[in-house]
Write a protein that binds this DNA or RNA. Sequence first.
DNA 1: ACAAATTTTTAGATTTGTCTAAAATTAATT
DNA 2: AATTAATTTTAGACAAATCTAAAAATTTGT
Lengths: 218, 218
Amino acid sequence: MTRSEENYIKTIFHLGRKGTQEVATNAIAELMETKPSSVTDMIKRLSEKDLVNYKRYQGVSLTDLGNKTALNIIRKHRLWEVFLVEKLDFSWDEVHEVAEQLEHIKSDKLIDSLDRLLAFPKFDPHGDPIPDKNGGFKERDRELLSEVPVNTGGVCVGVKDSSATFLKFLDKNGIALGNRIKVIEIEEFDGSLNIEIDGRKMQISHVIASNLYIKARE
Amino acid sequence: MTRSEENYIKTIFHLGRKGTQEVATNAIAELMETKPSSVTDMIKRLSEKDLVNYKRYQGVSLTDLGNKTALNIIRKHRLWEVFLVEKLDFSWDEVHEVAEQLEHIKSDKLIDSLDRLLAFPKFDPHGDPIPDKNGGFKERDRELLSEVPVNTGGVCVGVKDSSATFLKFLDKNGIALGNRIKVIEIEEFDGSLNIEIDGRKMQISHVIASNLYIKARE
DNA sequence: ACAAATTTTTAGATTTGTCTAAAATTAATT
DNA sequence: AATTAATTTTAGACAAATCTAAAAATTTGT
Ligand SMILES: [Mn+2]
Ligand SMILES: [Mn+2]
Ligand SMILES: [Mn+2]
Ligand SMILES: [Mn+2]
């Protein structure tokens, strides 16, 4: 598989997670910052290799083989991200770009050894689950901070938006995975939240809250 | 720079080390397992980018920029090899192939951090020197075991041939970097050597001896 | 239901990197 | 010095991955 094919497969996987619908050509093009005509070309190649199901004008979805392939790339991406943070002292907003390159390195032994070096981590620095060798992974029980009622809360376990901009904002405001967050009050006017985070009180906008995952309450 | 351009630059560097001559098109083609016509095409592109000096039919040599580029790739290659051996328990015959991929990852921060993680190693697992950030490196004083007279010797510090075949042979026969080797006798007939290695006596062919470096005697 | 808007695909061109076959140049031998 | 041999370059083709512009199919709005 070429690097480009792998990137398409990964994108189709991520877009496919959302709904149960087929993935649209334009959606792929937009996410990959490429043109729809290029996407169509590539989809045909991937279809030829039995990585995707494709009927003209009807969108695309991953085959079992495509799914397995995607999970393998995502496994590599997330393991490298853990490596960069844990072993090379990268911050969580710096890892993605480099992991985009490292995810394409081909060596089973390499990735297995890396997994062992990192003590078989189950989640990446943004709280996303790391598939195991066979592509299996458990989506952690979690919900968006914006969805929980007043006076409840939990431990921050992930971010929905993992852009460098958002992650740096969180750093600046002392919000990190592992923090205990409790919702004190929700403003009627704009939906902003007064929260208590590791004892400290602060106010965050609705947009922020809707990009923070906390461990689900029982 | 593309991956292919980087591989050509690296090959030209290695071929250029040997003699003071310009590097021949055919030599590049042979080492890279490609066709001379492809080499000519690429040389033109590299020349356009001021990475090589090129006059038709007259061979090719690296410019200062090309040399700097080559040393940077080699630095990455060798640091990754150390990483694979030291941190991921690869054997020295397994690292090269993966390092060929890893050497093309683009991130200064990554390679600097890796260097620090490994405690700034000066030599790779095969005894080859690792250039520093500015491309500077000192070739270690060493000589081939086949060149030293009877009754002398030294510490094994490197291999000339670092093919998996040769390295596995050395493993099988308990020869490794750091071993003390002394030449006991040289057979007139075929040039094979009786040596003492870390106290143990054994016989090796001239070909083996001419691919083992030992620390130079004063 | 039909026209308009949107989405998707095709057609044709471009860049990178490769190849084969043929021509040009240089090197080696008589 | 002339012929032969080896090396190197050109010419033309091809696959991968991309683009623009135009055509086809689908979806939406009235
Ligand atoms: Mn990422
Ligand atoms: Mn990628
Ligand atoms: Mn190597
Ligand atoms: Mn390489």
